[in-house]
Structures are given as C-alpha cells and as structure tokens.
Computed example of a mutant assay.
Amino acid sequence: MKILVTGSNGFIGKNLVEKLNELKDYEIITIDKENSKEELVNGVICADFIFHLAGINRPKNDAEFFEGNTGLTEEIISVLKENNKKTSILITSSIQAELDNAYGKSKKGAEDALLAYGVESDAKVFIYRLSNVFGKWCRPNYNSAVATFCHNIATGEEIFISDPSKEMTLVYIDDVVRNLVRTMNDKNAKLGYITVDVEHKITLGEIVDLINSFKNSRADLMIPNMGSEITKKLYSTYLSYLPEDNFSYPLKMNVDSRGSFTEVLKTADRGQVSINISKPGITKGNHWHNTKNEKFLVVSGNGVVRFRKLGSEKIIECRVSGEKLEVVDIPVGYTHSIVNEGTADMVTLMWVNEVFNSEIPDTIWLEV
C-alpha cells in the first residue's frame, strides 16, 4: 500500500512518517516544501491513501494562507479528478477554521474543497480539526505554547503568560498519530469531521508550573505523578527539549569511610529510591522502623542482611549477591543490618515507602 504524506518534514508529518516506517507495512511517499510540483503530482497519482498535512500558518501575507492551505488542497483534488482517481484523503485542519480570520478561512476553504471532492467522487474523506498539538519535534517560539514553554524553561530563557487561568485543550502527538493511522486502516471509519479520542484540559498556569517542576526535579529529585496522563506526556515532551549538553545531572553523594549513600529520586506518594555503596567488611543499618518499610536489592557484590525481631534473640540471615538478583523486604519491628562480606564494593538499590522526614525519621538505633 502506497501512502502519500504531504508536509512530511513538519511536526505532525515527521511523527506520522516515523510511525508508518515502524509499522513496516507501507511504501511511503514523502512530500514537503523542498519537493517539486511534479513530484507532488506523481505522488498524488501513485498513492492509495493521502495524508495531507502540509499547510501555511506563518506567512508573509494573508494571501499565502489561501495559497498554501485552500489552494494546495484544491490542487491535489484537481490532480485526482484529472486522473479519474477516487483516493481517500485525510487532512489535518484547525479549530481556527471556525474563526473569522485569514488563517481560519483558509483552513475552512480546504475543508470545504475536500468535502465537495468526497461528494463528487464518492471518495472517503476525513478531516481532523486539531486543537493545540504538543509533543516531541514541535518547533518552539513558533505556534505552540507548550513547545515554547518546554524549550525556554529547559534552556533558562524567559517565558511570558498573559493569562495563567486561560484553559487550553491539548492533544498529544502520539494520540494524534494513533488516530490518523487507525482512521486509514478502518474500513468503517467515520467520514467527514473526526476528533482525536483523547483530549486534555489544562490551564496555561498549570502547564508552566508542571514544566518548572520537571526542571526543578534535578535538584529536589521529586518525580511528578506519572499516573496523570497529561503530566506524563508533558514530562516526555519537556525532556525532548533538553539542550544536547545537558542530558545528565549530578547527584549529591554522602560519602564517608564506610562507602556512600545517594538519593536518586523521590515521589510524593510512592516513596524514594537510593543507592548505597558499602566497602568490604562494612556493616550498615542496625536500626528498626515503626511504619517505614524498605526493599533492598544488591546489584553488585556479596553480603548478608540480618534481622532480629524486637524482644527476640533469634537472628535471621538472608544472603544477597549481584550474581542472583533478589529483593529483600525489611519488615517493621525488626532491627536489621546489611554487611558486605565480599572483597569489592557492594552496591545496593534501596526503596523506602516514604520520603525521608528529619522531623519524623522513624529510625531507631538497635544492634542486631
């Protein structure tokens, strides 16, 4: 199946082309502004399905809106008619098609031309009126507030919000692409106007607060709630705008003669993760907790975790090794220790069910 994608180097086009390449079921014809009119015509004639994503949204004058939006759509339709083709076409339009401005009118003109083509030729036509699309590869400081916020906050540049309380309707690029591909493959897909099946309502102020929290997480180690779909998608989007020389960041290592202890990440509701490194022969722990619970996972080295229930003299031992990954749960009410019995540093991944609170440490010293 031959698929034509116009605007293939644009934000949506690039993401769609990569998804189609990943699926490996299609021969993809890519057309962008660098291609000639002849290449466009040949692509239209050869295609079994057309994704018409190309358009103009930042012209030198209003006339370019109509040339690049309405005019290009009419040109594609004209080629199909001249060659007696009834190829299905899907176009991405904009919610601004409802507005009385040059851009909106040019997008509405493209919609009307496509709908007329569907009636005249009995071809399947699909129109996605997209709201604010966000995600990786979107151009910042252009026509996407989310892209601009992510880029500017990641690079330390200023941002400006005229009204933090203004509510936005966002659609994520992966959801858009999934919908486009599904529509193409669904023989019973609804014709005409279609909406993306997942939308997110969020204010400009909330968007900026979240993105700032992503940047701050390198210092405070707090990871936001990834159970929230909009938070997860905005976080992924933010990371895609990190400067290439800023992918990594240091952690504070608490080092002494016994080894080191380093906090890696924290969450408001899922506790925190740390890395403990013990030198050979070193014992750490010898304390117990009332409510706090931990999980130990030795990933390198060899040792033993020892437990003793308060009020009992019985000592329980659990051998641990990086050669056999095994999680050890630390029950409350048991004093416990971990000993490096090997000849090299022992590295332990530790999870605790709460972020450390110095006012309520819930850590009572008692030798095993």
Rank of each mutant, 00 (worst) to 15 (best):
R218T: 14
G303T: 06
V299K: 11
D269A: 09
L239G: 05
K284L: 13
S217I: 07
F296W: 06
L297T: 13
N212M: 09
S228R: 04
N276I: 04
P280R: 02
L239W: 03
S260N: 12
N290K: 15
P250Y: 03
S248C: 00
L221V: 05
G259W: 09
H289K: 03
M184N: 05
V208Q: 09
S240K: 04
V208F: 06
K215W: 10
I194P: 00
V305L: 11
K252A: 05
T291S: 10
N216V: 02
N246L: 00
K309W: 01
S260M: 10
I230G: 00
I277L: 00
K284R: 15
P224H: 01
P224D: 00
N302I: 11
E229R: 05
N302Y: 12
T203Q: 11
I277R: 06
H200Q: 02
K295L: 14
D209Q: 09
N216I: 02
N188K: 12
I211R: 08
E229M: 07
K284H: 09
N216E: 15
K215F: 14
T231Y: 04
F261N: 03
F261E: 00
R308V: 04
K309G: 10
P280N: 07
S228T: 01
K187I: 05
N293E: 15
F214D: 07
A268R: 13
H289P: 02
K215E: 15
I211F: 11
D256L: 13
L251C: 10
I202W: 00
A189I: 09
Y235S: 10
I230Q: 04
K266P: 03
G192F: 02
E294P: 05
K201V: 00
W288Y: 15
K190Y: 01
A189R: 06
V305R: 12
N286D: 15
M253Q: 14
M253E: 15
D269K: 13
S217P: 13
L297A: 12
D209E: 14
R258M: 04
S228H: 09
E206F: 04
K295S: 14
G271W: 08
R270F: 09
N290H: 15
Y249A: 01
K279I: 00
H289T: 09
N290Y: 14
T231V: 14
V255M: 03
S278P: 01
M184Y: 10
A189L: 09
G205I: 03
S213E: 07
N254T: 03
G311W: 12
T291M: 02
V208L: 12
I275R: 13
L251S: 10
T291K: 15
K284N: 14
E313C: 01
R308C: 11
K215L: 14
T291I: 07
N179T: 02
E313F: 01
F296P: 06
N246D: 12
E206C: 08
I275D: 02
I194E: 09
T237N: 11
S312H: 05
A189N: 08
V273K: 06
I275L: 15
T203E: 11
F247P: 00
V304Q: 07
R182Q: 15
V181H: 02
G227R: 10
